[in-house]
């Protein structure tokens, strides 16, 4: 225990999705805010189990799409209608019907780029460093294991209580992780069976 720095998070391992969902519900009901689950694939129902509000991505993409539409409209109007009026086939230099394909394409283009960059922003990626990677067991989070991490910055966090809570929902392994390059510190599983 030669650490004088506060640990970063508590990492509990689970074998199946039903136990993981149950653990998330328990943490949510106990009032934890700074916790997360880590899974190799998105688990349905986890957002509700964790009590997460809806993703904020939708409105961002709408704004992006609007920007794309406006860009296309102004570009065509200015280039063909104002700066270099071009009469082709007797049609007016600035004519809306022929703009439709490009209005559509740029709306889609800008929306898609916003969707991806917006997702990057909301997820704070690319991220170079995270203490969770100090756990060698965490490699399995992208393979076949399921994890719950509880941040020590959570106001509800208490090493013993939180550990007992995670044990009561049948985690198979639990460890304490520090935000330096030290390996994770394994904690022995107590046999606290809660009802």
């Amino acid at each position: 225990m030669a650490k004088n720095k506060k640990p970063a998070l508590l990492l509990a391992e689970f074998d199946t999705t039903p136990t993981l969902i149950h653990a998330a519900e328990k943490l949510r009901d106990a009032g934890y805010k700074s916790f997360d689950t880590h899974t190799p694939f998105p688990v349905h129902g986890m957002d509700a189990a964790m009590g997460l509000p809806d993703s904020k991505l939708g409105p961002m993409v709408f704004a992006g799409g609007l920007a794309g539409f406006t860009t296309a409209f102004v570009m065509i109007w200015w280039m063909n209608g104002v700066d270099y009026p071009l009469v082709v086939g007797g049609k007016p230099p600035f004519s809306i019907p022929s703009m439709v394909p490009i209005l559509f394409e740029l709306t889609v283009l800008f929306s898609s780029i916003t969707a991806v960059l917006g997702m990057f922003h909301l997820n704070r990626i690319p991220q170079h460093h995270h203490p969770i990677f100090n756990s060698s067991r965490f490699d399995a989070a992208s393979d076949d294991k399921f994890f719950v991490s509880v941040g020590t910055d959570d106001p509800k966090f208490d090493l013993d209580k939180t550990k007992r809570l995670l044990e009561s929902v049948h985690c198979t392994h639990i460890e304490l992780i520090h935000d330096d390059d030290s390996p994770a510190e394994e904690l022995s599983l107590g046999h606290a069976e809660a009802s």
């Binding site: 997360d36 880590h38 997702m119 460093h129």
Partner: peptide, 17 residues
């Protein structure tokens, strides 16, 4: 992989995207 951790908070935005 951009530091992907399979976190559910990230999966939520990811699936929406």
């Amino acid at each position: 992989a951009l530091g992907w951790r399979g976190s559910n908070r990230a999966w939520q935005n990811y699936e929406r995207a």
